[in-house]
């Protein structure tokens, strides 16, 4: 078993607030890891640090053993990691297919000028996340929350990540939509995708993850199987207050 993503002593402060307080953990290749913690625990911040959207104050973040800190976000994505956003914010004036195709673009001005749009690939990715053909030429504003989450997944998958950071992919979805996205995530795992998933919906999370890490107030609490973590005294305190 090798680690694909490692965080070591990562610290991030926002003014006086320590949003990430000396976090150390690692993700195995092919693993599905749940990151849980109450509101404001600092889960989203960790994703932003891994992606380079926020700069770490100290500590190390490595992908495939190589240091990521210092790299701009787009370069991290080219190294095989990507995230989804808790609040999907698609490109509002582009149709669904065009949104996905932004994720397929090469990062070279010349190639962007001369290479044609890859509609076939865009369609295939849309299909793979369960977006209907009829939705492809809709504006994102016309989509349901479930379809918006699928679009967010599709645009992210288009960058061909090996590791995906999924932030609250179930929030605001019907149980049918949750089942659909869960099914999709299981499938992607069989294709070799590694992911870290954040969700407040613990019941939906449980069957998806191999292992869980709990945190509160920017600090690591414990790690283990889902059951072990949920039975942990400190976790029960943080979550349920008893």
């Amino acid at each position: 078993m090798t680690f694909i993503l490692e965080l070591e002593h990562v610290v991030k402060r926002f003014g006086g607030l320590v949003a990430t307080n000396d976090m150390t953990f690692a993700v195995y290749k092919g693993e599905s890891l749940g990151l849980i913690g109450p509101n404001g625990a600092g889960k989203t911040t960790i994703f932003s640090l891994i992606m380079g959207e926020h700069k770490v104050d100290s500590g190390s973040i490595r992908l495939h053993g190589e240091e990521l800190t210092g790299l701009p976000t787009h370069k991290r994505i080219r190294r095989g990691i990507a995230r989804t956003y808790q609040v999907p914010r698609p490109f509002a004036d582009m149709d669904v297919l065009a949104n996905i195709e932004v994720g397929l673009m090469p990062d070279s001005l010349i190639e962007m000028l001369v290479s044609p749009f890859d509609h076939a690939e865009g369609r295939a990715i849309a299909r793979s996340v369960g977006l209907a053909e009829a939705d492809l030429h809709r504006d994102p504003a016309e989509l349901s929350m479930g379809d918006l989450r699928k679009l967010e997944l599709a645009r992210t998958l288009a960058t061909r990540p090996e590791v995906m950071l999924l932030d609250e992919v179930f929030a605001g979805l019907t149980s049918g939509e949750i089942a659909q996205i869960s099914g999709l995530l299981k499938e992607k795992r069989q294709d070799g995708l590694t992911y870290v998933i954040v969700s407040h919906d613990l019941r939906s999370l449980e069957p998806l993850i191999d292992r869980a890490i709990a945190m509160t107030q920017g600090t690591f609490v414990c790690a283990g199987s889902y059951q072990e973590v949920m039975n942990d005294k400190a976790v029960r305190m943080a979550y349920l207050g008893h």
Binding site: M51, E53, P72, T73, H74, I77, R78, A82, R83, Y85, R89, P90, F91, A92, D93, M94, A98, E101, V102, G103, M105, D107, M112, F117, R155, T156, A158, T159
Partner: peptide, 17 residues
């Protein structure tokens, strides 16, 4: 398309690599 996308959500363009 990418230029127009920047006007709509620059982070997501960067986040698309």
């Amino acid at each position: 398309t990418a230029l127009s996308a920047i006007g709509m959500n620059e982070e997501a363009v960067e986040g698309s690599g």
